[in-house]
Write a protein that binds this DNA or RNA. Sequence first.
RNA 1: GCGGACGUGGCGAAACUGGUAGACGCAAGGGACUUAAAAUCCCUCGGCCUUUGGUCAUACGGGUUCGACUCCCGUCGUCCGCACCA
Length: 881
Amino acid sequence: MDSERYNAREVEPKWQRIWEDRQIFRTGNDESRPKYYVLEMFPYPSGRIHMGHVRNYTMGDVIARYKRARGFDVLHPMGWDAFGMPAENAAWHNKSHPADWTYANIASMRTQLKAMGLSLDWSREIATCDPGYYKHQQRLFLDFLKAGLVVRKKSKVNWDPLDHTVLANEQVIDGRGWRSGALVEQRELTQWFFKITDFAEDLLRSLDDMPRWPEKVRLMQANWIGRSEGLSLRFELEPAPQTTAREIEVYTTRPDTLFGAKFLAIAADHPLAGEIARKDPELAAFIAECHHGGTSAEAIETAEKKGYDTGLKARHPFDPDWHLPVYVANFVLMDYGTGAIFGCPAHDQRDLDFANAYGLGNTPVVCPPGEDPSTFTIETIAYEGDGMLIHSHFLDGMTMKDAKEEAAKRLESKLLGNRPQGRREVRYRLRDWGISRQRYWGCPIPVIHCAVCGAVPVPASDLPVELPRDMSFDEPGNPLDRHPTWKHVACPACGAPALRETDTMDTFVDSSWYFVRFTDPWNTAAPTTPSVVEKWLPVDQYIGGIEHAILHLLYARFFTRAMQATGHVGVLKEPFAGLFTQGMVVHETYRAKDGAWLYPAEVRFDYEFHGSLGPSRRAFRIDSGEEVAIGAIEKMSKSKKNTVDPDDIISAYGADTARWFVLSDSPPERDVIWTEDGVQGAAKFVQRLWRLMGELAGLAAPVGTPFPGDMSAEAAAIRRAVHMSLIKVEEDIARLRFNRAVAQIHDLANKLSAAIGAIESENIGADIRATFREAADIMVLMVAPMMPHLAEECWAALGHADLAAGAEWPIAERALVVEDTIAYPVQVNGRKRADLVVARDAGNAAIEAAALALEPVRRALDGKPVKKIIIVPQRIVNVVA
RNA sequence: GCGGACGUGGCGAAACUGGUAGACGCAAGGGACUUAAAAUCCCUCGGCCUUUGGUCAUACGGGUUCGACUCCCGUCGUCCGCACCA
């Protein structure tokens, strides 16, 4: 028998070359087969792929190859998210140019990806740093500008003092820059914004219509958009010397609690606070103090509620003689609502904390169910739930909902200064997307600033505004701004000397439309070809990390809408019909006595036994023998040295082994633990499958042999197992449950090995030979999406002249898996006691009689009378005694 | 604080719509082959007991049901997101 080992190192490049020569993964734009667009989030070209990429791209590739086999016209492209700060940092450290650094990284990562055997259409490759790409992005910017979707406004921005750049709110995590980790400062700058808030309602509402997105992601986006329905309400101020202002506008979602109001509070940044502070140094000092408060989670958590009494008095809207004090308070935010609130201590914890600190008291106006309104009081814990209105005049006895409605209605029809005093309003937490970045390595914003004409768009014919090549990166700040000539241009409108915008776009802009560009990357005249976009979008299956649940995915959803509004996309709205967020690749950490982290390759393991406690595992340094602490299993990171380089795995075991392993152990949405044992297990299975297919090739009938008329029971049983596996693997791949598909294939391999073992005679029947032919072919085609190289090699060994990658998916014969007997587990009082095999068409009476006749059932019944017998067809029999 | 997810052998896990808990794999132990090793093949592998059987067991405590890993209530723990959003 052929005992040759499968040599992935030789075989894999061979098939990769053949695939490439025959261009079988090229996708045209004018086929009529049903389309399927698979996309994995494109990588940042850091220089090396990591295991996370391997997992991500393998999953997408399995789907792409499977869908191709099922007759779909599959689009599966790849590109590079190539702008961003690491290139500039590298330029600064190594004196290399960001473009050179980036393109060199792309070249080496492309080689690595190709070694994985991914079925990608490389003819559509794009890099966002390529002028041929960002030219179109600038065009989109200008079209958005014309459509009113871009605005320039002065605003307070999050300034990252380490990266010298502006960050979007989404990029500030716990008060720190998402990349640098530096404490973010507030600065006032004039910035370009995309008006994502114009689409807030639609972005929120459409989430309900995205069944193939994880619930978790939709929820995160909904929370982020943060819709609230409330009332804008103006309080009249008593005349006072501090200010000429006659009113304060607050925003509230709880107009039902107006009769519980004890104070008004405005933000430290509120214009009125600023006005009063000019004449009131004590208030000025208080405002300054508010600004110094940290924005970190801990700082907010522990921050005391503090306020400053302005001395102003506001009139209660339902009782002009009722005056409320007006405070400046540290817990009121200027950038939400109107920057002012009314405080109802009994029903808002923050207000209660504040009221208790300043002795303002509280009046409960909502009585929880089951409480006695006459005795219900609030001390230190506010009641924020539903209930019945009390102490509230005309609202008394109403539910919260009715009271909100009634209060809103009255305030809408009540006039203050010729305008309704209250106005219903929907507010969002979502802010406009600030895209200006003070960096070199990004897409230039195509605008020229003219002293006379203002901000003038660069004419479309002048695009792209290209980044200058001759740069220096030895100082902090924006290199483009320091360039001696680049920014000096003539105003396109009046011809006078003018200055280019030197800010570049947030790199999230680049990734907000790349999936659209992939549909027709050859169009040099326009960003998209709408008819082609129509054909391919939406992406049928998008796969990437959960870390992009909010930022990237929300921006891309916005962009699709904005592109639709500007005619670059047709009727489509949602870019990603199906979203899958895969888990991370994690690994144990190892730490020496001196605290140094060690690579997995520097450690060996021993097992010790402690009786029933099970084995314990210890780790030792290979070089010194010193014992090493086995640490937590964590996301692979260079700093903790718990990384495994895909290149090493591929050269040691082959791409198929790596692919098989990342698919096999854990459900794809969960983290997978990378272990050396696991990889070896995968490698062993590669060899085992190769041997098994070799054995079957020797026993199987030639390709194309029909089944004989007479099939033995053995042959029928094998066919049943094969087709059962096929059905399950189809279901599992369709639902992205790759770990189950892997288990199923293992199982079938076990069964086929057993079948071969059971057949020892020299003269194997024609039925068995034909069955083995079918079994081997189906097995190989099922494995092909996951281990494509091994599949090709087996396919050829099995006598096929064509490519497995081009073969059609086998047709599962469902009739085969139906058995003519059914094995029922028989329970007595819900506890399994016996098995019962009956004919498929046996009636209930026959099943009951047979079940009661079983010896273990009689024993379990122990003479007790049977109350009833439950028979669930095809499932179970339960005898209730 | 608010919202969400999760909790099953030594480990990763599986279990369909409420129907045989632990498929499949890893690790481990025993055996075969071998001068030896690797590779390969076979057997065992949740706990306990009086072991052709019984009993307990899906974080813990209750409930619904003929039947619960699955549904409901409560407790504990872990992880994730948001966070003074009025």
